[in-house]
Design a protein around this nucleic acid. Structure first.
Lengths: 249, 249
DNA sequence: TCACATGTTGCAGTTTTTTGCAAGAAAAAA
DNA sequence: TTTTTTCTTGCAAAAAACTGCAACATGTGA
């Protein structure tokens, strides 16, 4: 039997049953487990399936969320994400908000860093689900079609039952005086719940949003422990935020 | 024998059998393996077939192999999805399982049909989240990186608090005698919880899976109300399932 | 016709690929 | 924790691929 042929059969089997054992495949194909293992390794390298301990799983689900081509101010957001990541410690329990900046952060989590991540954002979850070293817990509820995050009383209730070391939050608007504000009342309730559930709150915020505000208030600036922008912490634009306990990064 | 003629015969063989061994060709054509090898190399360079170690495979054959983006047996799954969708009624509260068949079903939900959909599959959720007429509720919990679904006690507990009109389920393995079985014990617990939460259970199952089984049992065939395959309900392959209360579609 | 270039084929020696095996490491299970 | 299973690594045998070479056929031009 040709290697090619064998690998095709492995793919069939995996796609059909979602998950198969190497030993089962070996028996079925009448080759040694080592051979199957090598085949599966190759197919994995070629992104045809995913190799796991003892077997292989189908890749049918995982459209590895290709970054939607046009993210606004991507380079700034990547800079923010990079700084935010430097706050992560092995074994930490963190929450990651929705939004493109937080999504960028999720994407940039180092592949060796073991974390427990909570999120209620589908795109963030999809991103993190592809990382085997990340223990991912999705906070369910009614999904809002606009933001792709779960929201509502059920979600908030679940947030009341957990506790994060760090919450990495985005915001619609931020102002030194008026704090974090949002367009949506629902979103404010949700973010409040996240803040209540976190020991420390890190705000990821592109400098363009500084000194803007809207109707509904999430929290004061003082409720934030660390604010991450793409600017240097010494930048004059941050002067109004240079106070008390707020750490700039 | 002319080289041209010989190469044509090689192509015929490849198209006929999808794969051939160089040694077989050599014997058949009564030339040395080296000659065949050189021919195959040329044909490969001309994209007439694909040369692999020890033989050659047809291009169509490898094309189905390189379906990283495509779903295995897509047309069958679409046929199943279409039939399953015909069971949906305006305003129904349904659960949709993970897996490519169910994902296909989610994708094909008519744009005017108002539904309340529950799921614990990230890809399915992502698909449904884009549909404004669908009220989507994600059942949260720890996300398994393999299957992109939430699982574990938390998920199961939440499932115990809801009630669906219909649950559209996939399965790893199905057998008339042994019922629905899975590779993973966890998955079985989860599916059991779904079945408990549903008034009616619809199994979406490609015919290729019929008469296969694995270690852990989800339920008996009798616990399923409707089984949907891509086959006509009268097909002989379904004879073993033609019993009692099971409705074939 | 002859000399010569060109292309094809088979052979031999060497290199590469594939495969299975075994021992220790790592991971999962009990 | 201990036990079992799986993974990794290195190795060796077998199969296949590659290379260079020689033999042979075919065609070309003098």
């Amino acid at each position: 039997m040709l290697k090619e042929e064998r690998q095709q059969l492995i793919l069939n089997e995996v796609d059909l049953h979602n998950r198969v054992l190497l030993t089962d495949l070996a028996e079925q194909l009448e080759v040694s487990v080592d051979t199957v293992r090598r085949d599966v390794k190759e197919l994995d390298a070629g992104s045809k399936l995913r190799k796991v301990h003892g077997g292989a799983v189908s890749l049918g689900y995982t459209h590895t969320a290709a970054r939607s081509s046009n993210v606004y101010a991507l380079s700034e957001k990547m800079a923010i994400a990079e700084k935010a990541i430097s706050l992560l410690r092995e074994g930490a329990v963190v929450f990651i908000d929705g939004g493109t900046t937080c999504l960028e952060m999720a994407r940039m989590i180092p592949p060796k860093l073991k974390l427990t991540c909570f999120t209620f954002s589908l795109p963030v979850a999809l991103q993190l689900a592809g990382m085997p070293h990340v223990d991912l817990i999705f906070i369910g509820g009614r999904i809002s079609p606009d933001s792709m995050i779960s929201n509502g009383p059920y979600t908030i209730q679940q947030l009341s039952e957990v506790r994060f070391d760090y919450a990495f939050l985005g915001t619609g608007y931020v102002d030194a005086l008026h704090g974090l504000t949002e367009f949506d009342w629902d979103v404010v309730q949700l973010k409040k719940a996240v803040i209540r559930a976190s020991k420390k709150v890190v705000l990821l915020c592109i400098s363009e949003k500084l000194n803007s505000q809207h109707r509904f208030k999430t929290c004061d600036i003082n409720d934030i422990n660390t604010m991450v922008t793409e600017l240097s912490p010494e930048n004059n634009l941050l002067n109004l935020f240079r106070n008390q306990d707020l750490r700039l990064l």
